[in-house]
Design a protein around this nucleic acid. Structure first.
Lengths: 331, 331
DNA sequence: TTGCCTATTGAAAACGTTTAACTTTTATAG
DNA sequence: CTATAAAAGTTAAACGTTTTCAATAGGCAA
């Protein structure tokens, strides 16, 4: 049924070895043979079976990007960066989603263990760091958009603590003293880091930390809306709110706008990620911008480099972030 | 270096055949052997090489979803549906992005030709329909979120013509007579269908079609902003705008809001897709909702069914859409 | 004891490639 | 012409599985 290299060889009147050489444009093959093989390939509509090839070479030239979901649109820039870097070395990037389930994340890592891909990039992993760290000893794994507290694995991310500090400090610089924080219940390293940055900024400005000003929720807009409602119901209202994601901020601003609170004056907002909608939603949101494309590009470059050596690079790279100032902070 | 089934066999003092049988929990193997093999697997940290397995079985249990980019967040629901359906039959869904480049789309289809995956779902393909149709004769391909004008390939989509008709008719029902259309330059079938629906609705209401009221652009918010600006600069302004995507609508509304046009009164907006932000952006956007999850689930179910038979189903399935009415149409 | 059946097991072929090792052909120099 | 090197081509092994087929062992009836 299926056309194999043997059929091509027969049709071209050469051996399979010669066909293989032509297909991989190796030297040591006459122009004549090249022609014959190409003609046969064309005629038969042959395309080589990668399973055979990959098995023989023990290499697939594919890298798997494992991601919670594709919902966060800003991942798409990261993926573009990954693709561009992969292309240079002839790799393809495949994506698989875990639905934020650690068990499914492990299942997908199975593609690495079973050699269906050469390497894996975990984008904001859900598995615990010990597990990941252990795995990375035997397999080519890198982390992107997060770092691990155990730092013996290749990570490409930003300095989230510093970013949290910068955003909060900016609000303080605007004369704000009661700064709310909306963050996630689930303790991802990046969330924790951003919160720590928030705390450090308060401390640096001699503002006492008030746990009432912190609202824990999900990663979505609804959390923002509820968080804003909760914070604004406090006897002592905040005058600014820092959220660990733009989506949350937009949800929060929606609440403010609908309740006649003047955003950018009565209440300042600072988001995180600079998603596309953050400059379309009015008032426009001030936010921390991550170098998404660059993080993706970098992590693949480093990972591919690691695949070529026995002395893998296990550093954590922190790429520079920046503050984008818009109407939500009165700019 | 790598642990193979042979090493396990040696450690368990059985043959590779027995190990294989245990691993695939076949019958005909003694409890004793099962124990020994499992122990050896555990000790050695063995996991089977899928390349060998897949080659032998000529089956990978993987389906590739090819997509322009993950930026459109509403794809994530489609993918969830695909995953859920795939899981039932033990398949994994892999995703790859084309950056909307037909050439790269073809490159990714190579994974199908070369048997690295068992089937492919094209989400809104960029390749011309003739090419796709030809390919589908030899390989297991399905289309989702689009249909092909050549209808000899499995498609799961909605009735975009009807949806365009419904949205436009709704605006007409609100007493509007000058209805703008913002659509895409690139002639995807779904865009064309939606436009045709728009035209048919006008005709049904005896409203003459005015080509000045159609703005062609990209698929993004910027297009909406520019489109709205262009349409509102006409001597004879529109009183409603239908866009073929929510992202465009939101961009358009941004322009309106910023130029003191009262959305939902002076100007009505109707979008398409019901993306998450469409109910967060104020005023909230009326839109056509596609059954994303269901389309994803259905296409995989049908595709897997096709993989099991020699008489593949080549139908086009149109799943029901619905109108979501919000403030942007004065509801 | 013998023969037969069943339950386990193992040896080896097969999947489709690439590539090392070897052979044949062709070209080049003397 | 011959000797030799380079070029072109072939054969067969190898990659890691699954699976067919044959073989062995044990149980049981006759």
């Amino acid at each position: 049924m299926n056309i194999t290299i043997k059929d091509v060889a027969k049709a071209a009147n050469v051996s399979v070895a010669t066909v293989s050489r032509v297909l991989n444009n190796k030297s040591n093959v006459s122009e004549e043979a090249v022609q014959a093989v190409n003609r046969a390939v064309e005629e038969l509509g042959y395309s080589p079976n990668f399973l055979g090839r990959d098995l023989r070479k023990s290499e697939t030239k594919r890298i798997l990007a494992i991601i919670g979901s594709t919902e966060q649109s800003f991942y798409s820039d990261v993926l573009r960066g990954m693709q561009d870097a992969a292309f240079v070395d002839g790799y393809d990037i495949l994506i698989a989603t875990t639905r934020n389930d650690p068990e499914h994340e492990m299942h997908l890592l199975g593609m690495l263990f079973s050699r269906a891909v050469d390497g894996v990039v975990l984008l904001a992993p859900k598995l615990d760091s010990k597990t990941i760290s252990d795995l990375s000893k035997r397999y080519r794994i890198a982390i992107c958009l997060e770092r691990l507290d155990i730092s013996d694995i290749l990570c490409v991310t930003i300095d989230n603590e510093r970013a949290g500090f910068d955003a909060t400090s900016y609000l303080i610089g605007k004369g704000r003293r009661r700064i709310g924080l909306i963050t996630t219940e689930v303790r991802s390293q990046s969330s924790v880091d951003r919160e720590n940055g928030y705390m450090r900024a308060l401390k640096a400005a001699n503002i006492p930390f008030d746990p009432d000003l912190v609202y824990y929720g999900d990663y979505d807009a609804d959390t923002g809306t509820r968080g804003c409602e909760a914070l604004m119901s406090l006897p002592n209202r905040p005058d600014a709110i820092f959220s660990i994601s733009d989506t949350i901020s937009i949800g929060a601003m929606t609440y403010a706008v609908q309740h006649g609170i003047t955003v950018g004056k009565d209440l300042l907002f600072f988001g995180f990620d600079n998603i596309a909608y953050s400059h379309m939603f009015i008032p426009r949101l001030s936010t921390v911008e991550q170098p998404c494309y660059l993080q993706g590009k970098t992590v693949i470059e480093k990972l591919i480099a690691n695949m070529k050596t026995d002395e893998p690079d296990k550093s954590t790279y922190m790429l520079p972030h920046s503050l984008i100032l818009r109407e939500s902070t009165g700019d």
